[in-house]
Amino acid sequence: MAVQSTTIDRKLAERPPASLWRDAFERLLRNRLAILGAVIVLLLILLAVFGPFITPYEYSQTDTQLVREARGPANPGEAGHLFGTDILGRDLLSRIMDGARISMTVALVVQVTVLLIGVPIGALAGWFGGRIDNLLMRFTDITYAFPDLLFIILLTVVFKDTWFGGAMDGLLLVFVAIGIVSWVGVARLVRGQMLSLKETEYVEAARAIGVPDRKIVTRHLLPNAIGPIIVAVTLGIPGAILAEALLAFIGIGANPPRASWGTLITDGQTWMSSEPHLLLFPAIAIALALLSFTFLGDGLRDALDPKLKGKQ
């Protein structure tokens, strides 16, 4: 008996203190696809931050040498352009790198908008319940009923000529508009979390010792709901990137010469049969981004779901 208990003690001592986050992180590390996704996401973020310093050319700069020779766009690898140039002789690699900047900004701005609207609405509805819950959830239902893309197009047209419409080459407005129609999922999720968490014993204990409501919500409930929120936000990013690309396809988005991946793809398909690289490279770029966020989000969900604990 004594021997057995010492081995258990030693095992316990060797095992680092298991917090939910450390466990989750270890589970995440075991998921190869999620790690691949995380690495690509990290690269894209670095590219977005430092892109302007490392692009081989300015994204808007025309290779005058090509123009002087009065020839078509350079093919990949030609004339010092790794990915070739577009019809106007602009370096495609540099344009795609700048596009990464736009796509990562979509991810950021849309999801920040989603959090800023969705979390308070969900938290208020879930915490107070009753009439406030009813009112906020009806509001959520109505937002859900709007045909998303149509509403985004309408919003961007209305505010196009304001200062807001001109910010970030016209992109900020598009991003915020996407966010305004995308928060419903997060609001419902937060509300559901609130409803189940507020019945827990530690919340009851906090209430019993007189912790004010606001503090219970911000200190106890939201931090405990943060796992599912992170997952929802990560998995929402591909949708936001896709929405931006769809809008670019119908001509709503970055003002030229700026171009998002969506714009590059749209331009590229015009020249598809003679210059396939113009479609191919941006399509690969967007595919990488969509997949890496999806894999990372899936991995996070599996890692953060305590139900799966010990089953892998």
Binding site: M272, L279, A283, A287, L290
Partner: peptide, 22 residues
């Protein structure tokens, strides 16, 4: 699944036309 997630509908549309029509 990977192809479906990674390819926006309009890219898929263009590729399908290129392969199966043209």
């Amino acid at each position: 699944s990977v192809i479906g997630i990674a390819t926006p509908s309009f890219v898929l549309a263009v590729l399908l036309v290129l392969i199966f029509s043209v």
